[in-house]
Computed example of a mutant assay.
Amino acid sequence: MSQSDDAAKAGSRRAFLKNVAVASAATGLSGVVGETLAQTGNVANPTGPASKPATPATIALNKQYADFLNFADVQDFEDAKRGLVATLPEPVIIKGQGEFPAWNLQQFAFVSGGPENNAPSTVNPSLWRNAKLNMNHGLYTVVDGIWQVRGYDLSVMSIIRGDHGYIVIDPFITTEVASTVWKQLVIPHLGDKPITHVIYTHSHVDHYGGVRGLVSDEDLKSGKVQIVAPVGFTEAAVGENIIAGNAMGRRASYMYGSLLPRDPVGIVDGGLGKTTSVGTITLAVPSMFAEKTGQKLTLDGVEIEV
């Protein structure tokens, strides 16, 4: 096969992937992933199997963690509150009138207390401590000119101040969460400035799904907003969330326990965040790419090294 044939095939493949991504974005990314999350996330299964108490083996193993870990160390709890600017008055984000919430931190209100070990017998003490830390939520200052919004999705959204506006990194899973956070936390406390760039750090849906809650089609088409991602991002996102969407959706349901009740015998935490938000998953195709380690990109006056 000639080099020209190879180039033509590669170009056709890129065009196909872009068309799939654009079409998927218009329908909430893939119907598979969108529907799976809508059916399972934040909704306990009322007909599922009855919960069981911790077995003696579980109790014994959890006690090993309780005896080994230093629960007198409060540094994590101090760090988790540092830099807090503001929180949503109620940590509940409604999808629309009469609909179930896209996000509801209040359903985890049973997770409470300080750094001391008061874990139920069904929960590993380390996980219970992490679950307490993940109850913190709001807009936080990291350093001057860099902020994060935490506690409203599985992932964290970061914001960098540029010369003319904001650079957003990883805009959550759903548009409902991204839009609410921007309107109710970012604009009131940081100022109403345009978004110039959105960075996807990688192809997992919790790092790009909420993008169209922040930017419009017009701004994307005009180039007013640039989408920055690792090279190969679109192919990876399509492969993971559309071609393998059914399997990934089921995997996510098991991994995050989304069908379990929110209680000490169900789901208490998702590890890196409380759980996944539920709502509209979208995608904006990248217009700029990080191609190699050490590459330098200047985005709205901010130099970023890959």
Rank of each mutant, 00 (worst) to 15 (best):
I242G: 00
E99A: 15
A109Y: 00
H137F: 13
I195P: 11
E240A: 09
A50N: 11
L260C: 07
V186M: 08
T40M: 02
N117C: 10
Y256R: 09
V228W: 08
G210C: 07
N136C: 13
Y256E: 02
N45K: 04
E291F: 01
A131D: 05
G162Y: 04
T174C: 11
T276S: 15
E303H: 00
G34I: 00
A54Q: 03
E90Q: 14
I281W: 06
H202S: 13
L69K: 04
K132Y: 04
P261R: 01
T276C: 15
V85T: 06
F71I: 08
K81D: 11
N134R: 14
Y200I: 08
S287P: 11
L297R: 11
G145E: 06
E116Y: 06
Q226A: 14
A25V: 01
A23N: 12
N62E: 01
D219L: 03
T40K: 06
K81Q: 13
P101L: 06
K292G: 10
V149G: 01
Q75L: 09
V142D: 09
V43D: 02
Q148G: 01
V177R: 01
Y140W: 05
Q106P: 00
Q184V: 02
T174H: 08
K193A: 15
A290T: 14
D76T: 05
S216P: 11
A86Y: 03
R161A: 14
A60Q: 03
I94C: 05
L133D: 10
V143I: 13
G209F: 08
P171N: 04
R150I: 02
G210F: 09
H202A: 12
P286R: 07
G11V: 00
V215A: 05
A178W: 02
T293S: 15
L133N: 09
A290R: 15
A131R: 03
N124T: 02
Q184W: 02
G96D: 15
S12I: 13
L61C: 02
H207S: 13
V111E: 04
N241S: 12
Y140P: 05
V74N: 11
V211E: 04
S30W: 03
L69D: 11
N62R: 07
E176A: 08
A7W: 10
Q295E: 15
L220W: 07
D300P: 12
H197Y: 10
G245D: 06
V20I: 13
H164V: 00
K274S: 12
M1A: 14
P230R: 06
L299E: 11
I199M: 13
Q39D: 12
G279L: 09
E99W: 03
N134I: 03
I146P: 00
A237P: 12
T282K: 10
L299N: 09
S203C: 13
D219M: 06
E35P: 00
G239K: 12
I304M: 08
P101T: 05
R14E: 15
G114L: 10
P115K: 09
G273V: 08
P171R: 02
A72W: 01
Q97H: 08
M288A: 14
V215M: 05
H204A: 12
N104I: 01
D170C: 03
V32S: 12
V306L: 08
G41P: 00
D170Q: 03
I195K: 10
G249Y: 02
G301N: 08
I304F: 11
D170N: 15
F100M: 13
D6P: 00
G279F: 07
G249V: 02
G151F: 09
S222H: 00
A284F: 07
S121G: 02
I281R: 00
R13E: 12
H197A: 07
T55H: 04
V205Y: 11
R150Q: 07
